[in-house]
Simulated assay, not measured.
Amino acid sequence: MPSAWTDKTPQQGSSSQVRKALSRFRLSQPSPSEMARLTPRHCLYKTELIKPQRPWKALSDVELSTAEYVDWYNHRRLHGEIGHVPPAEYETAHYQNTQKQQVTATI
């Protein structure tokens, strides 16, 4: 089974794993600051989804579970750093507040 599904590499290599995954899908290489944001999420994804369910039977199983995980992560998971609300709810509130502040009257 490919290592992308089982992840037998040490935790310290997670940054290089993210870079390899991005290049595999022909995505641009992230900047160091982007890597600082990507690596913890990648580790969380592996810890919460990939490792508990391995070994995976097929790539399609990983893809479907990943889509479900991303939906849950963005729409139902409560995040303490943003007031114990899901990211999608927080983002909606942020843009509603931003748009209200930008409304100006024209004479």
Rank of each mutant, 00 (worst) to 15 (best):
R37S: 09
G80M: 08
M1R: 00
S14Q: 14
G13V: 10
E68F: 02
E89H: 12
G83I: 09
C43M: 11
R24F: 07
L59I: 07
A58W: 00
S23M: 05
W5M: 06
F25L: 14
A93W: 15
Q96I: 15
E34V: 01
A58T: 04
Q53A: 06
H79L: 15
S14M: 13
S14L: 11
R19I: 06
L78Q: 15
S15H: 11
L22E: 03
H79Y: 15
A105I: 15
Q53L: 08
S65Q: 01
I107C: 14
S23I: 04
Y45T: 04
S65T: 02
Y45S: 03
H42P: 04
V85A: 14
N97V: 08
S3R: 08
V62T: 01
S60C: 02
Y69L: 05
H94G: 09
L49M: 13
L78I: 09
V103P: 05
Q96D: 12
Q96V: 12
A93R: 15
A93H: 12
E91F: 12
S16R: 15
P30T: 02
T104P: 06
L44V: 04
R54F: 01
T66P: 09
K51Q: 06
T66V: 07
K46T: 03
R37M: 09
G83C: 06
T106R: 15
W72N: 07
S60F: 00
W72G: 00
Y73D: 03
D61V: 00
Y90M: 07
R37E: 06
Y45R: 00
S33N: 07
T98S: 14
S60V: 04
S23K: 13
A67E: 09
G13R: 10
L64T: 12
P10E: 13
V70D: 02
K100I: 10
Q12D: 04
Y73G: 04
R54D: 02
Y95Q: 10
H42M: 08
E89T: 14
